[in-house]
Design a protein around this nucleic acid. Structure first.
Lengths: 335, 335
DNA sequence: AACAAATTGATTGACGTACCTCAAATCACA
DNA sequence: TGTGATTTGAGGTACGTCAATCAATTTGTT
């Protein structure tokens, strides 16, 4: 009823079980002739290893860590929730998820967190600092598989990145901004931090499409909101007091402040923000926010786990691995 | 190292392994006192059943069927590809996927396919015909779990629907159409079939938002393209010859014809279509198509498998189960 | 107290794979 | 042909759970 087993392979290859085992788990000490026979038998019988039995036998437990910024609002809260959901689901598949919270810009703390890991693979969302890249190298050297999550560390030894194509996200934002805005006018771009890679990539994509396709719109110099509602509110208020804004592209967190400022402004600018949180969802509903570009945290976590598993099992990763789709939410399709 | 086992539970509950087993698999013949002790021990030790071992022991193999329309172009081809990918991946988790191709509108054939099933659960994409709903009831009665895929059969005995919220899809199309179009003008809606539920729901959503928010735009009566490129091309050509079209909402298949007609037309209408296929992708790239609303076939298949598994294991389904996210693609975010 | 019925315990053999040991067979090379 | 190295075979134990049997104990009823 269920597929062929190693016994069937051994029979088909006319060798002993031990030899099949040696080939399958390349333990060496097998003549090339025997190896060929076994491989042929595998192909012929259509044998696939029963992973459940294999893992059971070797008492294998996958231990994956997630080193991510903590917080109980906004994106990080969603990520946290997604992680906990997945953790509960994965226990019964013998996959143990450990969530290690850090502080968003605390490099030292992140390094410390990475230093004390004891697991097969780790997913990291951390600052792009040399100390952290070194830690990644150290982890890799000690046999831990490393993937980056949401924020990439492309210069590091990480083996995969799970998250958005941030340039494409910025380009998409610009496209919708341009198409929603018929007339000319000035657009405000607010990043969380101008020194973070992902925010910069979004800015870059946004700027480029604006320049390529919507030259009648004017981009104000990007400002830094520090992912903080109060700063964002002040920046938006000041900008729209100085001149009429037709559009706002908010790249980082702090949308609560953005919503407050937009509601007080005289004219309603086209507002595009990132991440579907309770705040931005409400903004969509009441019309303060026009579009939310979102990376699905659940999808990211699921993808990360899958990749970590593939890596620890020594499988090679499929081509499009880790690309998280950009979700676009408007008031008509918030779920 | 790995979690507590039944042995630990037995020890903690001060009962025998056999009693733990009786409670865990509710075989009956256990005093309520013992049952309580075991349950307390499970909670206290944090025991979770090792599914791999359980399935191995009872030699369980999940057998899931997918009864879906075949074809080598458009959406059904994508679905087919997604199914095959998942099938290959799932073999090693002891999940056997059988793909049973049918013809799109061949109700008799679909009924026949459903009649010969031998599996634990089935995912069906079929016409909304009484014969099929009866077949679904029969399957359910014989213990097969049934979910609908992409096209729902809400009147039937199916236990879950995996697919888009088609009303929301239509509403979203209307919103973007309205926002892209500043001026007034006439909009053409082309459905595949006016008698199919999903197409009707999309139309309904589209119409409603147009009426609620964009009354300066005029909707022409919906036409039927029969998911066929030639029909669609003819319909679009005729419509745009008769009057200037500012927008086209194409709900079904046949986008090849749509693209040809739009390219020949004098004025370029805002064009929104469904499903990201090679054709619509190309349309986005060359500017013929402005927006593609897509339901991710991979996501749908993965969700369906997960639900079928939950169902056959007797777990109850999470609340938001089966809702497939509406992906919105523009030329800047085709991946 | 006697007896049947209900409950509990002890034990066993799968499931498919990993991993180990020890002995037997085959090989390479002088 | 003999020696040592390499390759192969046979067999066992373990992983955690299921499913079953049979004996032992407790419980309830008269």
């Amino acid at each position: 009823m269920s597929g062929p087993t190693v016994h069937d392979v051994a029979k088909a290859a006319q060798v002993s079980l031990a030899t099949v085992d040696r080939v399958l788990n390349n333990r060496g000490g097998v003549s090339s002739k025997a190896e060929a026979k076994v491989k042929a038998a595998v192909a012929q019988t259509g044998y696939v290893r029963n992973m459940a039995a294999a893992n059971l036998s070797r008492r294998r437990v996958y231990r994956f860590c997630f080193v991510v910024p903590s917080g109980d609002t906004g994106f990080v809260a969603l990520l946290q929730a997604a992680l906990e959901r997945e953790r509960d689901r994965l226990v019964e598949e013998q996959i143990l998820i450990q969530i290690i919270p850090t502080h968003a810009f605390d490099v030292a703390g992140q390094v410390a967190a990475l230093r004390n890991l004891d697991c097969d693979a780790v997913a990291i969302m951390a600052s792009e600092a040399p100390e952290i890249q070194e830690e990644v190298s150290r982890l890799r050297a000690s046999g831990v598989r490393v993937v980056t999550l949401v924020a990439d560390l492309p210069q590091s030894d990480r083996e995969a990145y799970v998250g958005l194509d941030n340039v494409a996200a910025g380009r998409t934002a610009a496209e919708f901004m341009g198409r929603f805005l018929g007339d000319s006018g000035e657009i405000l771009m607010i990043a969380g931090s101008l020194s973070s890679r992902d925010h910069n990539e979004r800015l870059m994509g946004f700027r480029r499409v604006m320049q390529e396709r919507f030259q009648h719109l004017t981009l104000l110099p990007a400002v830094e909101g520090n992912d903080d509602a109060q700063s964002v509110e002040r920046l938006v208020s000041e900008a729209s007091a100085a001149r009429p804004l037709v559009g706002i592209y908010a790249i980082g967190a702090g949308n609560k402040g953005l919503v407050r400022a937009v509601q007080k402004a005289d004219a309603k600018p086209v507002t595009i923000v990132h991440e579907l949180t309770p705040t931005s969802r409400q903004g969509l509903r009441d019309g303060t926010i026009d579009l939310v570009l979102d990376q699905d945290t659940s999808a990211a976590v699921v993808a990360a786990v899958r990749i970590m598993r593939d890596l620890t099992e020594g499988r090679d990763l499929p081509a499009d691995t880790g690309k998280i789709r950009l979700n676009i939410f408007s008031r008509e399709n918030i779920q």
